[in-house]
Amino acid sequence: MRISVSEAKAQLTELVRRAEAGDEIILTRHGQAAVRLVPMKAAVDSESRRALLEAARASGRGKATIGPSAARSQDFLYGDDGLPG
């Protein structure tokens, strides 16, 4: 739905309800889109955030594999004299 800012002033409560319900509300100024009303996402509490981080860490630990040391991983690019080969 597109509506001018001046018209939206009188209908703000209804426009907010519609945006919360999922309707796309675009406010226009001089016929050009200026602002889009979108619903706010629920804030994540610290316990939920901590649980999400722990799940991500556990997932990463499960996928990690032992490989070559990063300090020696590019040795194949250099010759015995230490110059690019």
Rank of each mutant, 00 (worst) to 15 (best):
I3T: 05
I3P: 00
V5T: 11
E7L: 05
A8C: 08
A8N: 11
A8R: 00
A8K: 00
K9D: 12
A10V: 03
L12P: 00
T13E: 15
T13I: 13
L15F: 14
V16H: 01
V16N: 00
E20L: 06
E20A: 09
E20F: 04
A21G: 06
A21Y: 07
D23I: 04
D23L: 03
D23N: 09
D23V: 05
D23Q: 12
I25C: 02
I26G: 00
I26F: 06
I26E: 03
L27H: 04
L27Q: 02
L27P: 01
T28G: 01
R29I: 04
R29M: 04
H30L: 02
G31I: 05
A33E: 15
A34L: 09
A34Q: 08
V35S: 06
R36Y: 07
R36K: 15
R36H: 11
V38Y: 14
V38R: 15
P39S: 06
M40L: 09
M40F: 12
M40A: 09
K41F: 12
K41M: 08
A43D: 15
V44H: 06
D45N: 15
D45V: 04
S46G: 01
R50K: 14
A51K: 15
A51H: 12
L52W: 15
E54N: 11
A55R: 15
A55N: 12
A56N: 12
A58P: 00
A58D: 14
G60E: 13
G60I: 13
R61H: 12
G62F: 10
T65M: 13
I66G: 02
I66V: 14
P68C: 04
A71G: 05
R72C: 02
Q74F: 15
Q74D: 14
D75I: 10
D75W: 11
F76S: 04
L77A: 09
L77W: 06
Y78E: 11
Y78W: 13
D80C: 02
D81R: 01
D81P: 00
G82Q: 03
L83R: 10
P84F: 08
P84Q: 08
P84W: 06
